[in-house]
Design a protein around this nucleic acid. Sequence first.
DNA 1: AGACTAATAAGCTTATCGGCTAACAAAGGC
DNA 2: GCCTTTGTTAGCCGATAAGCTTATTAGTCT
Lengths: 97, 97
Amino acid sequence: MDSLFEALAHPTRRRILELLKGGGMSAGAIAERFDVSKPTMSGHFAKLRAAGLVQAEIRGTSTIYTLNLSTLEEVMMAFMARLGVGDDATEPREESA
Amino acid sequence: MDSLFEALAHPTRRRILELLKGGGMSAGAIAERFDVSKPTMSGHFAKLRAAGLVQAEIRGTSTIYTLNLSTLEEVMMAFMARLGVGDDATEPREESA
DNA sequence: AGACTAATAAGCTTATCGGCTAACAAAGGC
DNA sequence: GCCTTTGTTAGCCGATAAGCTTATTAGTCT
């Protein structure tokens, strides 16, 4: 959980996730979209991997990164639930009937 | 958005939010629950305020912090939507019918 | 084998973060 | 008026994060 929120703390890493929404991309292809060096990007990838937010598949000389939304969804929902967001019991219950 | 994710990046700050789920609390009462100095806690409060995650109401000599869930919900939902989470169009649509 | 490409690892620098103590500001109570 | 309580501000320090350049690893191709 800590590693996930830390990973999300950096704008570049959040943008990487958005980029991957459209499907897997190689490390180089992703790096091209940003104004930082490739090693710096590699560091960002490592944090996203550590958080379980992306999966890396080595294909020949390339590394293809794909989004792992289930991790994000799980952790986010767990956290929101702990705060009572989306929890029907939090508010005085104003159901339709 | 940046300030919100930065605020959430620290475990102590996430725990503060959970603590506030039960209702408003004074800065001192919150600080008692943690093993860090009061000035350090004050710094955490400042970041949560900057992110709009809590509201401060000065009551006499005390500062009462209350949770501001709407900010969290808004930003989280916007972010998730950008990634396609909870978006029906993402998966091949396997509705009941 | 050797050259080239893709990505990461190593090493370094700078800036920011999280913690502390000490000092300060403001409100309340005696 | 003064002391106490509460919380924040100021100033400092060590650790970590984010960036860079250079070096290394691993795969492909000729």
